[in-house]
């Protein structure tokens, strides 16, 4: 019960808070802007396409709810929330009349796959390498790794992805230039291997940055851990280094990294969006990029809302898994 009251409940509240703050900010942005996006967007739409009047009306209704100018401020806020809760973001207007949900939904599996594998791999790599380097700070490999990652860490995601793209598809064409996969989707080796090959570079470019970040943190944590009483004591008893490293150093270094992962998911997600743009990977990032080019506000708004809810929920799940790893929280 204490676990529920002292651990789970505050986090659920925090989750609700994140979504509340995020949705409210998203609601406020267009209303505080000097430009009226609706007229701009509708003007553009009707100038280029031949649209039936009913369609335009439906679009205007959605836009007014989302960017809203109809009714009082409070009414608009309520209407906005209703749309968010229903998950109804109306039609896209660059691909009119396809609904926004469908457009985003098509990109979602690619992004989740890319992001999921990048998060897991970079976390594990970062924690393990960081712990190793923190436990053996004087070894040559540890110092080389440290120096390399310190240089890689601050490089913006875009630049990193772009350099990889130039290096491995253009100068050394060992990877396909763009896209998600070739062939027809299915559970056959050809298709799956094509997915893997296409996702390799995009994944690497997120993983490198995220691993560097995790490595630097883990190394600092591990070197504190190494001077902790229980590690010194186990070493004094001549417990094998391998065992000390895994069960004493890494095991304890991991714990704060779980909480931190929950906080940094957003940043990794941003990295994934940019990477997808660079590699024209067919995920949410590319959908976002296309909607930027075509000024498709509904889609941009939808992706913003979805990412807020999605990241908040993913952080919540990561956070809630913490008691599985820390007995001090589990058995209070």
């Amino acid at each position: 019960m204490t676990l529920l009251k002292e651990f789970i409940l505050p986090r659920l509240l925090q989750w609700a808070m994140v979504i509340f703050v995020g949705v409210t900010i998203t609601f406020l942005i267009p209303r505080l802007s000097p430009v009226n996006p609706i007229d701009q967007a509708l003007g553009r739409l009707t100038a280029f396409q031949n649209v039936e009047p009913e369609g335009v009306l439906a679009l205007r209704a959605t836009l007014e709810d989302l960017y809203g100018l109809g009714g009082s401020f409070f009414d608009q806020y309520i209407a906005f929330w209703q749309r968010v809760i229903r998950g109804d973001l109306g039609p896209s207007f660059s691909a009119f009349p396809r609904p926004v949900n469908e457009l985003i939904g098509a990109g979602l599996p690619w992004t989740i796959g890319l992001l999921g594998s990048a998060v897991v791999l970079s976390w594990v790599l970062g924690v393990v390498l960081g712990s190793l380097a923190g436990y053996f700070p004087h070894r040559l490999w540890s110092q080389v790794l440290d120096k390399v990652l310190i240089v890689v860490y601050p490089i913006p995601y875009y630049i990193l992805a772009f350099v990889l793209l130039m290096a491995f598809t253009y100068y050394l064409p060992i990877f396909p230039l763009v896209g998600g996969a070739k062939g027809t989707p299915g559970l056959n080796w050809d298709y799956i291997s094509s997915v893997l090959i296409h996702s390799f570079l995009p994944a690497v470019s997120i993983i490198v940055g995220a691993t560097a970040f995790r490595f630097i943190m883990s190394k600092a944590l591990a070197s504190t851990e190494t001077s902790s009483d229980y590690v010194t004591y186990a070493e004094m008893a001549a417990v094998p280094k391998r065992k000390v490293l895994f069960f004493y150093v890494t095991r304890n270094t991991m714990l704060p990294q779980i909480t931190d992962l929950a906080l940094s998911l957003g940043a990794i997600f941003e990295g994934a969006l940019i990477t997808e743009v660079v590699f024209a990977y067919p995920g949410v990032g590319s959908v976002l990029y296309n909607s930027i080019i075509s000024a498709d506000y509904n889609v941009i708004m939808g992706i913003t809302l979805l990412s807020i809810v999605g990241i908040a929920t993913a952080s919540l799940i990561v956070d809630l898994s913490y008691p599985l790893f820390d007995p001090r929280v589990r058995f209070r």
Partner: peptide, 18 residues
Amino acid sequence: DSVIVIPRLPLVILIASI
């Protein structure tokens, strides 16, 4: 703590595109 969790890039893109 809430603001930290919210991904900033989509928000910036939303603002910038408006």
